[in-house]
Amino acid sequence: MSNSTAAKQPIFDAGDVGAQAQGFVNASVVWVQAYWLQILIAAAAGAAIVVVLHTARRFGRKLCNRPQALGGWGIVVGKAIGRTSNFFIVMLAAKLVAGYAATPGEVATTISFLFTVAAVFQAAVWVREIILGAIEHRTQSEHYSGEALLSAMGLIRLLVTFLVFAVALVVVLDNLGVNVTGLVAGLGVGGIAIGLAAQGIFADLFAALAIIFDRPFRRGDSISYDTASGSVEAIGLKSTRIRGIDGEERVISNKNLLDKEILNNTQRNHRRAKFVIGVTYFTPADVCARLPALLKEVVEANDKIFIRAGFTGFGASSLDFEVQFDSDGPDYASFYNGRSAVGIAILKRLNDEKIEIAFPTQVNMMAAPDGSVVMPYPDIKASSDPAATPA
């Protein structure tokens, strides 16, 4: 009989809840009557804490209007502080003064629970604002723009919001005594499924974030990768668009681009040119010895940075020399024109010095049956003698 009666008892007993509420009210009344002075002092201290926190929040909102504050990060910090909720401020003040007011167990437990909820979700808001603010600050400082960036920021905002608030919910439920093992496992399985389904998109998205934060190149930079070169026109959610040197538009996924070795030509501090000059084998040795100094004079006369010049080897039809020199800065047009000027100046100086530049030559020798060399042309002297001409 007792077992059936126990089985029929409802899971939710309104009377028990009412008794707990009545007990909470009675404990609060007794507490106020016994410690009214401490409660007043604690309330005054709590009010002061609330005022201080509100002042800090107003200061944070003012930082949003100072783009140069804290090295440009003032807006990020200001937005995070400005998103502090009134509920968190009140519960923080109550938590700080609760001990002084000798709060009873029922009231202290309620304050602790509400403070935990407020603190966890407030921390989630701060983390979200700092992450998103940092990304926005970096994209603005690097002048990234366009619909692709807006789409990327929308997706990033959704992912960050879901992640931080999912963690906050798990923490709150765990503090309530709820077994969150199944919830965590479900979130993990769901995250894995979503990650596998959209791994290509996420790979390119994280690659775009890597480009924004690591800054291997920026929009407008001239880069080279593989055998291609061009100027970066746009960095999007999934791909980067590059204007090729022949005018074509190249589109490459962010992940594939970062997997390659990228040469950022805009970040060069100089460009180097090299000429290989071959002079004939008839050039005297003393003239060859003077040639490196001569090349140096020509390079420096054209306001270029001389690196080295010297003899490099015996070619098939020439004595080979090499000269290397640098042009300041990354500008390719200036480098190109400077290289042309130096090349023409070298040619003029060699002509003035009567130093012949070799060109590929080949001599074919004819041999008689006995192995002796036969001249490939008739004897001019013999052919010009009338007496030698048969009648």
Rank of each mutant, 00 (worst) to 15 (best):
M1L: 10
A6L: 08
P10H: 03
A14H: 14
A14K: 12
V17N: 06
A21L: 15
A27E: 15
V29Q: 03
V32R: 07
Y35P: 04
L40D: 12
L40Q: 10
A45S: 11
A45E: 01
G46H: 05
I49A: 14
A56D: 04
R57K: 15
R58P: 03
F59N: 05
K62C: 01
P67G: 04
Q68T: 11
G72S: 10
W73I: 05
I75V: 10
V77P: 00
K79Q: 13
R83S: 15
T84F: 08
F87V: 11
V90K: 01
A101F: 10
A101L: 05
A102R: 08
G105W: 10
R128C: 02
R128I: 00
I135A: 09
I135Q: 07
E136D: 15
E136I: 13
S141W: 05
L149N: 04
L150F: 11
S151F: 09
L158C: 00
L159R: 02
V164R: 07
V172L: 07
D174P: 00
N175R: 15
G177L: 06
N179Q: 11
G182K: 11
L187I: 12
G190I: 05
F202I: 10
I212T: 08
I212L: 12
F213C: 08
R215G: 03
R215M: 09
R215Q: 12
R215Y: 01
R219N: 10
T227V: 11
S229G: 13
A234G: 03
T240N: 10
R243F: 09
E249M: 15
R250L: 14
N254I: 05
N254L: 01
N256G: 09
L257V: 02
L257A: 05
T266M: 07
N269W: 02
N269S: 12
F275G: 00
I277K: 02
T280C: 05
A285R: 15
D286L: 06
A289D: 14
A289R: 14
A289F: 04
K296Y: 06
A301C: 02
K304L: 09
I305T: 11
F306H: 10
I307R: 07
A309H: 01
A309F: 00
T312H: 01
T312W: 02
V323D: 03
S327N: 14
Y332F: 14
Y336N: 13
G338T: 01
S340M: 15
V342H: 04
E356L: 12
A358K: 00
F359L: 11
F359Y: 13
P360R: 07
P360V: 01
D370H: 05
M375W: 07
Y377L: 06
D379R: 04
P386Q: 02
P390S: 14
